[in-house]
Amino acid sequence: MDPNNIIVLAIIATSVATFISRFFGALTSEKVSVKSKTFQWFNCVAYSTLAALLGRMIVFPAGVLADSELIIRLIVLITCVVIFIISKKNLVLPTLFSAIFLSVLMHL
């Protein structure tokens, strides 16, 4: 098959696979009350699933980040979380600092 067609089909497959979760989430939401235990459970699972993805991204990253060492990624993450806390929860500062700090540490 033409590589261009494969790319287009891959974009369609990826978009459909992603929208399924969003759309069924919207459908399920119609039946879920904010005060219900079901909602509380979904809320906990949403945060933990997201945390699991982030934990995996730091410890077992995909793509170029895999070329940096785990200990360096952990040092950057912990330092940036400390900056976030002491800067009264400013999010721009730690995110900008993370890119610069990682580049510096990789060249030491």
Partner: peptide
């Protein structure tokens, strides 16, 4: 799939 519980929450 995380988008499903995120939408419902």
């Amino acid at each position: 799939f995380r988008l499903y519980p995120m939408t419902v929450s």
